[in-house]
Nucleic acid binder design. Structure first.
Length: 672
DNA sequence: TTCTGGACGCCA
DNA sequence: GGCGTCCAGAAG
């Protein structure tokens, strides 16, 4: 019998027609696999049951990555659990493939991811994409090297860093006793917070449990890692950050998942790190907007670790030099205890802070005027430079991005198109940054004054000017793209943008916080809170007043925010900020859902959600890009129900294959 | 992308 | 009434 040689096209057609290979017998025990499929459709955000063939029985472990045939297509997914039976009426498809028998999704993280998806009106698949890093097959095959077992077991963790706070020792005792203690912590100025966090992690570890510490950026990871090194030894912790590259990061992540390392410090993405038996979750500087995840469903580190502490029975520590309104709310509703030092201790640790109005000073001293420094700031810097480094905090890097009225500081806008005016160079005429017109006839729309001044002076220009004003003093700059972690104790001017301030050996002798009103002038509801946070973080790097530490805030606006820094009272400021949010019906006093999309689509979601009476809809308002934005606002008591109603409405739209996407954001940090 | 079930049409 | 075909909707 001869077989005609088929053409390749014919063979392909035959393959397509060929009946699927018989799946084989189901596994003898737990033959059903509950699978979370990785699909972006909201109405498919639920587990689907598949049959586990006997051939895959040993590798189809809970938490492993699988491929399944879903509506004809192969899709990725996670095996959530094995089960004896299925609710599904009808035949189950077999698992197509077990990608790897490494369990990457722990039951705890799966449960957390579901809770985060519900809290933020998103899908499990979206959260899992944030929680589980992409696979590196070679790394999975490497032999494991248990590290924590070899780590020196800490004796009794040092209470010392916490003894400055009245409620500190009892918090640490709670950790040692594996109790789910929760605290909002106003850290003393200085760098003692690093060892305090390291001690807290050691306390959790001494109870046999793990710890997770999430900080805003790499430099803070390095600082905390150094502290953990001191309290737990090099083998006792691991740093999870993007800096080490995806391969090493996956290696470390797997070590955490396997329980080889029990303490993790990392940036935002580490909030989902699968720490085994989590005993403590920490977020440092929770007001930093780096803690807001920019990918759907836009979860915030503070909320995620708070959820984790609840679900895992872990302790929670929300700390910073500043306190957010959200932190104050956790205390007010009794969810967390406050940890703050007494006023005498705070005063002893803090530098002396003065606020001066920059309209007053810059007259007499010509060098000071050249550097745009009010004379008090100038003198403070000059005196401090006798003994050590001086920090100058400026709002932004770069060259004079915008100009304003020299008298009232109102933004200078183009007379033709109302775009912002800018100065391209030191000698250039003001030019519109939108339409490019050179505007020589400007006068202030607010007060009629006709002279301009730089509204925000960049770090580079400030550095230039200071270098000229303080000739013979070295000038160091630190900002976006070139961030320095440390400076020595030698006298130097250190010009930095907020968040990029280097730590000075022994502390700065002084700090000047320049153009403070530019921070306060942000078109943002959190401008005050953000200004206080940035000032306190900079001032915390300065020596105590007794050691000569001085801070000058050059600010002529928002006395409440300035006073909070002068009095070093982050808790009082946060409480008043929270009170204002209550009165203004803003988070965290209420829950907001922001819907963005085409007018029709946004209306559709709002209509389908059939929102309860206690929930109000603001807008929709037209956005610059042609989309619209609606804000749905409701009391916390109905938050989960109205968020899930909005999510269901999203699901109905995805089931109907509506092309127009509506973005749903819950309590976004940036709300202009 | 594949499957299924209901609607519909054609024939006996 | 029975059977085949087509299409929409769902998707294990």
């Amino acid at each position: 019998m001869t077989t005609p040689t088929p053409t390749s096209a014919a063979r392909a057609a035959a393959n397509r027609r060929r009946a699927p290979r018989p799946p084989g017998e189901p596994a003898a025990v737990l033959p059903v696999a509950r699978i979370a499929v990785d699909l972006p459709l909201a109405h498919l955000d639920r587990p689907f049951d598949y049959m586990v063939p006997a051939s895959l029985d040993s590798v189809a472990v809970p938490g492993c990555r699988v491929r399944v045939r879903f509506a004809g297509q192969l899709v990725d997914g996670y095996l959530l659990e094995r089960s004896e039976s299925s609710e599904h009426v009808g035949k189950l498809s077999p698992l197509a493939k077990v990608v790897s028998d490494q369990s990457v999704l722990s039951p705890e993280v799966a449960r957390l991811a579901r809770a985060v998806a519900d809290r933020y009106g998103g899908t499990l698949a979206d959260v899992l994409r944030l929680a589980v890093p992409p696979r590196h097959a070679a790394v999975e095959k490497e032999p494991t090297s248990p590290r924590d077992a070899a780590a020196e077991q800490p004796g009794s963790p040092p209470l010392q860093p916490w003894s400055s706070y009245p409620t500190g020792p009892s918090f640490v005792e709670g950790l040692v006793a594996a109790r789910p203690v929760r605290a909002v912590w106003a850290a003393l100025p200085g760098d003692g917070w690093v060892d305090a966090i390291a001690a807290a992690a050691a306390a959790a570890r001494s109870a046999g449990r793990g710890a997770l510490i999430v900080v805003p950026d790499q430099r803070d990871v390095d600082r905390v890692a150094a502290g953990l090194q001191r309290s737990l030894g090099a083998a006792g912790y691991v740093a999870l950050t993007a800096e080490v590259g995806p391969r090493e990061r996956y290696r470390r992540w797997l070590a955490v998942r396997r329980g080889d390392v029990r303490v993790v410090v990392g940036t935002r993405a580490a909030m989902f790190a699968p720490v085994v038996d989590l005993g403590l979750a920490v977020v440092w500087d929770d007001g930093d907007d780096l803690h807001a995840e920019p990918h759907a469903p836009y979860p915030h580190v503070r909320e995620v670790v708070a959820l984790r502490s609840l679900l895992d029975g872990a302790a929670l520590l929300v700390g910073g030099h500043a306190v957010t309104a959200e932190g104050a709310a956790l205390v007010e509703r009794g969810f967390a205890q406050p940890i703050a030092a007494r006023r005498t201790i705070v005063r002893a640790a803090a530098p002396r802070v003065r606020a001066i109005d920059d309209a007053v000073g810059a007259t007499d001293d010509p060098s000071a005027r050249a550097a745009r420094l009010p004379s008090v700031a100038w003198q403070t810097a000059r005196d401090a430079l006798q003994s050590g480094p001086v920090l100058i905090q400026v709002p932004r890097r770069g060259y004079v991005p915008a100009v304003g009225c020299a008298r009232c500081h109102a933004r200078a806008l183009c007379t033709t198109c109302h775009g912002p005016l800018g100065l391209a160079g030191s000698a250039a005429a003001p030019t519109c940054r939108w339409c490019g017109r050179v505007d020589t006839t400007w006068s202030c729309a607010e007060c009629g004054f006709d002279r301009l001044r730089a509204r925000v002076i960049g770090a580079r220009r400030t550095a230039d000017e200071l270098g000229r004003a303080f000739a013979s003093t070295p000038v160091v700059t630190s900002g976006a793209g070139d961030v320095k972690a440390f400076v020595s104790a030698r006298p130097a001017l250190v010009v930095a943008t907020p968040g990029a301030e280097p730590v000075a050996e022994g502390g700065y002798c002084a700090a000047l916080l320049l153009d403070a009103w530019a921070l306060l002038g942000r078109h943002d509801l959190r401008a005050g809170e953000e200004a206080v946070r940035r000032w306190l973080n900079a001032a915390a790097l300065v020596r105590p007043a007794d050691a000569g530490g001085r801070v000058v805030v050059v600010a002529d606006a928002a006395p409440r925010a300035v006073q909070a820094v002068v009095r070093w009272d982050p808790v009082g400021f946060a409480q008043r900020e929270l009170q204002e949010r209550v009165e203004a019906h803003l988070p965290p006093a209420v829950r907001l859902a922001v819907l963005t999309g085409s007018a029709g689509a946004v209306d559709d979601v709002v209509a389908r959600a059939a929102l309860p009476a206690a929930v109000e809809v603001l807008g929709p308002t037209a956005e610059a890009d042609g989309s619209v934005r609606a804000i749905v606002r409701g009391p916390l008591s109905s938050a989960s129900s109205f968020v899930s109603a909005l999510r269901r409405a999203q699901g109905e739209r995805s089931a109907r294959k509506e092309a127009e996407h509506v973005r749903l954001q819950i309590d976004p940090v940036m709300l202009a």
